[in-house]
């Protein structure tokens, strides 16, 4: 039996906008993945700890508050520290285009902005997780 892809959908920081995170969590679950939703107000440490405990393949970070340059990169740094190079990190939310190159350079695999069809996210994850 093929192992299901495991995804942690996480909300870092104080941002309470959880509509997108929840929609994506459902879409990934409907696409056959195991989805763990972190709930709100997670620190980078909590997110990485959950990722380790749940042995996930992917972390999806959602942030609409504008704090992504700090909080996404905090998660990336901690993952590197724990040598979790196999975990793919993707992000979504209100993220100006000019911030995307820097996020990608630091190790975010892809940014999905407003208006992204959920299929696109599913396809990206399926393509990029080594089964």
């Amino acid at each position: 039996m093929e192992k299901k892809i495991r995804v942690l959908v996480a909300k870092p920081g104080l941002d309470g906008h959880d509509r997108g995170a929840k929609v994506v969590a459902r879409a990934l679950r409907d696409a056959g993945m195991e989805v763990i939703y972190s709930g709100l107000h997670q620190t980078a440490e909590q997110i990485v700890r959950t990722a380790i405990q749940e042995d996930v393949d992917v972390i999806g970070l959602s942030l609409l508050s504008g704090a992504h340059m700090t909080l996404f990169l905090d998660v990336i740094k901690l993952l590197k520290k724990h040598k979790m190079n196999n975990v793919i990190v993707v992000g979504g939310g209100i993220i100006p285009e000019e911030d995307v190159p820097r996020l990608k350079k630091e190790g975010v695999a892809e940014i999905f902005g407003p208006g992204t069809p959920t299929d696109e996210i599913v396809d990206f994850i399926k393509k990029n997780v080594k089964q």
């Binding site: 920081g13 104080l14 508050s65 504008g66 704090a67 340059m69």
Partner: peptide
């Protein structure tokens, strides 16, 4: 901003990255 909405001062650890953002 978010720290204010949650009753944190700007220098609280949970305020990280959020100052003046929304």
């Amino acid at each position: 901003d978010y720290p204010t909405l949650y009753g944190y001062d700007t220098d609280h650890p949970m305020a990280r990255g959020e100052f003046g953002k929304c």
